[in-house]
Design a protein around this nucleic acid. Sequence first.
DNA 1: CTACGCTTTTGCAGCGCTGCAAAACAGCAT
DNA 2: ATGCTGTTTTGCAGCGCTGCAAAAGCGTAG
Lengths: 336, 336
Amino acid sequence: MAELAGVSSRTVSNVVNGYANVTERTRVRVQKAVEELGYRPNVLARNLAQGRSGQIALVVPYLDTPYFSELLQSVIRAARERGYNVLIDQTDGDAEHERAFIAHGSRRLLFDGVIFSPLGLDQNALADHDPNLPLVILGERTSDGTFDHVGIDDVAASRQATEHLLDLGRTRVAAIGDQPYATGEAAQLRTRGFREAFAARGLTAREDLIISTPRFNRLDGARAMTHLLDLPEPPDAVFCYSDLVALGAIHTLIARGLRVPEDVAVIGYDDIEDGAYSNPSVTTISPDKEMIATTAVERLLLRIGSPTPPPGLEVRAPHRLVIRESTAGRQPRTRP
Amino acid sequence: MAELAGVSSRTVSNVVNGYANVTERTRVRVQKAVEELGYRPNVLARNLAQGRSGQIALVVPYLDTPYFSELLQSVIRAARERGYNVLIDQTDGDAEHERAFIAHGSRRLLFDGVIFSPLGLDQNALADHDPNLPLVILGERTSDGTFDHVGIDDVAASRQATEHLLDLGRTRVAAIGDQPYATGEAAQLRTRGFREAFAARGLTAREDLIISTPRFNRLDGARAMTHLLDLPEPPDAVFCYSDLVALGAIHTLIARGLRVPEDVAVIGYDDIEDGAYSNPSVTTISPDKEMIATTAVERLLLRIGSPTPPPGLEVRAPHRLVIRESTAGRQPRTRP
DNA sequence: CTACGCTTTTGCAGCGCTGCAAAACAGCAT
DNA sequence: ATGCTGTTTTGCAGCGCTGCAAAAGCGTAG
């Protein structure tokens, strides 16, 4: 290839990779040849030689869930800025699929590390990952020291959401999204925050107003809301464990002829774009997605680059309460 | 590696790849060794040797647009079933970014072909792609013979959408989403369908009711609707060029105290999940996304596998009109 | 027993790059 | 000149696989 323009292939490599100790003269000469031939290094060969792939995998349960697709975007951007490509995988929350990814991951030389949002695996199954696979977990788990974990403080956020509803003077506050089983750790943290909000003002949450759902999507929200409305003493406010659940719940409320928030106030979680434009728009807990993505990528690359695995880090990303119409009612608003 | 269990590395390769002409005896022997050592072939090395990457790229303007994230899912699944991985890239509709992808694409040995949904490039710029890069275009372009194109019949679909509104007896039907410039071909096809619907019944579309928008998202819809409502003779029905536009428009309508569909009927395009759960739910044109994704992947792999580029194919995927509350009103409905 | 054709297995080269260590060069002091 | 140090360039091997063609094995026919 470009040796035809003067030097050894090794020197070309040096120039292309910007290594030190190349005279200006040769650098210029090589660069001219590179331009002329339109030469681009073969990534595959480089990776093979270096024993790395230059790719990281992002493994999430669902891609059509707005929260994940918004996150995906930021992850891709952050990775690209650092010279990495992103491979996507969707697990559908299938435990076997998820396990396969982290179990013999290091054998799959397709990626150098994984950013993983588990759904079907509980904390135990998670601990059983390939120790050589650089791993960053997103969501509501806890690091056992062999991987990094990035997420917001779910208990605090949920407590804050619930307090917002109580502050409105609502007395029958429900929660939709609990998952009282091993893989439902995320949900349970939110339920804990929900209870804490009551406890903090000397109240107790009504157990029949805590509804479990298999997933966190619209349909679950709609179904749970229907169930709640059929209770003898239906709620006057609902904390939904995701914005999709909230949208589903609101859909049911409106269909039943109830007003949001006058009859029932609704708060969601995730701050997806849909929630900002729905009717009514949805009050929500907004995690700093940009920071979550960037931190996850940075930690992962650090792990990949480190010869001995660094200790597992717990990163708490910030969140904030975004108040919209579903709790505050229609405000005198500027035109869109 | 596995030779330790009897045979040459070449034979292992033969077994692993399921080549013919391996005796049952050796096949079994090798497979046992493979299991024992947990051996997995090195994808990088294989790819280098074969001069391919085993990956395809999916290049879309926005990943957080539900239409694309829903499509993405299907593409990933279709590719995986055929042994390919998917690399994702988001262009933000930036023409330079888009050009870079298809111009010297074949140099980037990272992927063997591209499924591309252009936004910033017009038909001319598109024609200027690297002829060696297997390429499948999605959306509303036309194949120039050097790539395949998969999409629905936008003119027919738009006409059908508009006719639906006219069938309701609406007389002041607006359109939101036109883009009267080179890169707006997609939008222009929809405007054509819009006009044809009028023409078919001897009417003419009111020009002041055709609104241009820079993009197809909620904000554009909300803004355009505001503009329309401020007209002396505001519309009583709106054809929106995407469901997001429709959601934005509906948001404005409700905020202005108007009823959908009683005062203004709204129809969207794309059939994203949000539209099915919004208040009111959105009538829409539903393209067969699953088929679009599968066809795109299949055509691309065919191109990749073919020594001489096959002629460019035009594929028309089916679509259908899905009637929901935003035109039909609230129906007596079964509980969710 | 040899020859022939067919199936199965093997060896070698090479994909295009980088790690490593040696070689060439340059500048300076002796 | 010679030796020494530090900088720049080079050659070789090898990452782990597959393409190719030759080699070995095997069964049947002559």
